[in-house]
Each structure stands twice: as structure tokens, then as C-alpha cells.
């Protein structure tokens, strides 16, 4: 990968993805070898909406490379509330840091912000748009547990607004995968993602029901269906209930089915799945640190 911005999974080639994943594997095998690799490097954290998990994961990654963070802090305490534009904010903060991580509620925010800065900018989630570093750790987890060749993956839940889904779907077009999308009709893939998958010639199937494809899957990637997508509580419960799994659901699946989730979960994966061999979502979350270390290592290397 060029020392550049990381805005969308659409920009990632198979080679880009594999080079990050290979480095992440080296890091995971011998983290101490990387402990002083970027001594003194500073990562600017700009989180315009709360995301404890992603933020902590980036903080851990840069610190384990010998660097540190400068954190804009919560939005209500910052100048954003006083009406400063995002374009101004990133231009100020790039002067404090060697790379920036941006989480922002508007789609396209990271792309626009990147046009205003010279240091590498990483999109850590732009509204319902993209979340490419989540995708890198997702694909790392898939590769470690199921391999990436001839893969059959089910992606279930809120496919319309789920940025982790959009990024993952794009990135998987680089590999020989069949993607099964499982959701209620109202939360099916957005037109733009469907358009790209079609353009890429991806093997894609859409379903409203998990049961009949579950036995064919190597990986099941579950995402949360949010209450606010529905007009009322009863409709939400009725629909969301059809896209939850528990140990019983997994009774008839292949022994090596890998169950993933970007977390946090609410009740879409029952806790009785946690102790089965299928559950990999905590491992997946842990993989965020070596994968983000690998990405930061590449980006900061390019800056030197």
C-alpha cells in the first residue's frame, strides 16, 4: 500500500489487504520486535461520535509501536459545538500528529477531510458509509480461521446502514468468495453497494431467511439490527427476532463454521454460543490491535 489515506475498502486491492494481513501476523507472532518501531509517533484521534472500542484499539496499536495519541476528546467539549467545520478541525489537528483517525457521523466525511490534510488519514467509520480497518481485522480473522479461498460467507442483520457490512462486502470481492446476504427486505443492501458488487462480478445471493443456507456456510458474520430502524417496538422485536442465533440454531451446522460479529452485540448472538467452538468474535476484536499496528506501521513507514 502507498503511504496514503485509508478511506474506503473499495480502494483496497488484494495485494494491499494481504500485505497488511501478513504484517499483522508477524506482529502477532512477535509483538516485542515492533515495540519501538515508531517511538515518539503521535496519532491524532478525532472521534465525533462515541466509539470506545475502535478508539481504544487504535490507542493500543500506536502505543504498542512505541507511539502515543493526541485525542480531541468527546465532541461536546470541543470546538465542533461552536460551529467549526470539519475541514478546519482536521487542518489544525494534522499539525499535532503524524497520522489521523477520524470517526464522524456523516457519510463521505473521511473522503472530504482527507482532501484537506497531508498526513495519512484513516476512516474509522463515516456514518453508514465505510469502516475499512474493521474490514481488515475481519478479513484477518476469516483468513486465520477459515481461509480466503473458495469461501462461503453469510452476512446477516442490518445490511442497509451497516458500514462494517459495506466495507466487508467490497473487500471480499478481491477473493474467491460467495457472499450470502441475509436480512429483512427493509434492511437489504443499499443500491450503491449492490451496484459495486455487480460491477466487480461478485458472487452474491440475497436471502430473507438464514435457515436454508446455514449448512452451506464457512463463516457467519452477524450484525446488530438497531431499534431506531423501526417505527415501533413490536415491529422491531418481531423482525429482529428472526435474525438472532443461539446454540440451538447452530445445531445442524458444519463443525468448523466460524461465527463473527463486529461487536458490541445486544441479543443477536445468545451468550450460549460463546462457549462453542464456533464463536470467534472476541478473538476478532482482539485482532484489531495487530491489524491496526500493521496498518499504522505501513502508513508511518511511508511518511519517513
Amino acid at each position: 500500500m502507498r503511504h496514503d489515506h485509508v478511506i474506503s475498502a473499495k480502494q483496497l486491492t488484494r495485494g494491499d489487504i494481504e500485505s497488511v494481513l501478513d504484517r499483522a501476523r508477524d506482529i502477532a507472532a512477535d509483538p516485542s520486535a515492533y515495540a519501538s518501531r515508531h517511538d515518539g509517533a503521535l496519532l491524532g484521534l478525532l472521534f465525533f461520535e462515541p466509539s470506545t472500542r475502535t478508539k481504544m484499539s487504535f490507542s493500543a496499536a500506536i502505543k504498542r509501536l512505541g507511539g502515543g495519541v493526541v485525542d480531541m476528546g468527546p465532541v461536546d467539549a470541543s470546538s465542533v459545538k461552536k460551529g467549526e467545520s470539519l475541514a478546519d478541525t482536521v487542518r489544525v489537528i494534522e499539525g499535532y500528529a503524524d497520522a489521523l483517525v477520524l470517526r464522524h457521523p456523516s457519510e463521505g466525511s473521511a473522503k472530504m477531510a482527507a482532501e484537506y490534510v497531508d498526513v495519512p488519514l484513516i476512516n474509522a467509520g463515516d456514518g453508514a458509509g465505510q469502516h475499512p480497518t474493521q474490514t481488515l481485522l475481519d478479513i484477518y480473522t476469516i483468513r486465520e480461521n477459515a481461509g480466503l479461498d473458495d469461501l462461503s460467507i453469510g452476512i446477516m442483520g442490518d445490511l442497509k446502514y451497516g458500514r462494517t457490512v459495506h466495507s466487508l462486502a467490497h473487500a471480499l470481492t478481491n477473493f474467491e468468495t460467495t457472499q450470502h446476504f441475509v436480512s429483512p427486505d427493509t434492511l437489504a443492501l443499499p443500491r450503491s453497494v449492490r451496484y459495486d458488487l455487480h460491477e466487480e462480478g461478485a458472487s452474491v445471493k440475497e436471502h430473507t431467511d438464514l435457515e436454508h443456507i446455514l449448512p452451506d456456510l464457512d463463516v457467519l458474520y452477524v450484525t446488530r439490527i438497531q431499534r431506531e430502524r423501526f417505527p415501533d417496538e413490536s415491529e422491531y422485536r418481531a423482525v429482529a427476532g428472526q435474525y438472532q442465533i443461539d446454540a440451538g440454531t447452530l445445531g445442524a451446522v458444519a463443525d468448523d463454521l466460524v461465527v463473527m460479529h463486529p461487536l458490541p452485540r445486544v441479543d443477536e448472538i445468545a451468550s450460549d454460543v460463546d462457549n462453542t467452538d464456533h464463536a470467534r468474535y472476541f478473538q476478532q476484536a482482539h485482532n484489531g490491535v495487530p491489524v491496526r499496528m500493521a496498518l499504522l506501521d505501513q502508513l508511518l513507514e511511508g511518511e519517513q
Partner: peptide, 13 residues
């Protein structure tokens, strides 16, 4: 047409 798009906000874009 996406009301949540950064280009619909008060940004220099």
C-alpha cells in the same frame, strides 16, 4: 439526495 452526506453540510466542499 443523501441528507447525511458531508456535501450537504456546512463544509467547504
Amino acid at each position: 439526495s443523501n441528507h447525511n452526506c458531508i456535501t450537504t453540510e456546512d463544509e467547504p466542499v
